[in-house]
């Protein structure tokens, strides 16, 4: 396959970026999208140019590092992570636009690499259960109804890639935050911190400069793990409940 790539190049956070064009030949449809970029980078290095920086790690769709907007879609045309996207999803001769996640809470570090530490700070605000090591009761002491456990798991599948933010017209992090809140709030183990968790995480989310939710639904469409839009509704409910009950 022969491709015409247009890639966002930006030296660092301080400088402005722009799209740069590259022609790439000899691409196999069996390559993953990132292997296609590897090929480009190998060529760039040998010709003395700086390779395109992009985040990637596990390349099996679970670490959440890869983060490319491909032809306007977070993670590209298939519902999966960028690393699991293959070149057979494109045609010979295609022009492919590759851009970083765009959101003011995710500033660009270089080229296609963005800073997603805002997500970590949302977790630090309350995305945990306080269970110091060694203090845990016997695992079977508290049965968890299977539907609750399954629901918690569905939300816990979130890989924190940030595609939801990238796809959201408002740069909102509601889907991420709600997945995290719901994972812990539906479990009995999460109950003691249920109110503070949702209030603190939402407050931190706002603090980080993410936008508000207009329920456009783009986040859930882009989510490679299929976290449903309904997750946001559940968090809103939790937040309202917590606001009523909060003793603060």
């Amino acid at each position: 396959m022969k491709l015409n790539l247009r890639v966002w190049r930006q030296k660092n956070a301080e400088t402005d970026g722009a799209m740069a064009s590259y022609e790439l030949d000899g691409i196999s449809p069996d390559m993953s999208f990132l292997e296609m970029l590897d090929t480009l980078n190998e060529e760039l290095i040998v010709s003395g140019e700086e390779p395109v920086a992009f985040d990637h790690d596990c390349r099996e769709g679970i670490c959440g590092a890869c983060s490319l907007v491909i032809n306007g879609d977070a993670h590209g045309p298939e519902r999966t992570t960028t690393c699991q996207l293959h070149m057979r999803s494109f045609q010979d001769g295609d022009t492919i636009d590759i851009e970083p996640w765009r959101a003011s809470a995710f500033p660009v570090i270089k080229d296609l690499v963005v800073d997603r530490t805002a997500f970590d700070r949302v977790i630090q605000a309350g995305g945990f259960i306080t269970a110091p090591t060694g203090a845990a009761p016997e695992a079977h002491a508290t049965p968890v109804p299977k539907p609750d456990a399954d629901l918690a798991f569905e939300h816990a599948e979130c890989i924190g890639c940030g595609a939801c933010v990238a796809a959201c017209p408002n740069g909102a992090a509601m889907l991420f935050t709600s997945a995290k809140v719901n994972h812990l709030n539906v479990l009995p183990q999460g109950a003691p911190e249920r109110e503070t968790r949702v209030l603190d995480m939402v407050a931190q989310m706002d603090e980080e400069g993410f936008g508000g939710c207009t329920l456009a639904g783009e986040c859930a469409t882009a989510c490679p793990k299929g976290i449903p839009l309904m997750s946001i509704t559940s968090m809103n409910k939790e937040w309202l409940r917590a606001t009523r009950k909060s003793k603060r």
């Binding site: 259960i129 269970a131 845990a136 079977h140 049965p143 798991f153 816990a156 183990q189």
Partner: peptide
């Protein structure tokens, strides 16, 4: 025990165990 207390959503049976 530790992981369950932290909220790790292990697979469960219908009885909740």
């Amino acid at each position: 025990d530790q992981c369950v207390a932290q909220g790790v959503p292990f697979a469960r049976e219908y009885g909740g165990l």
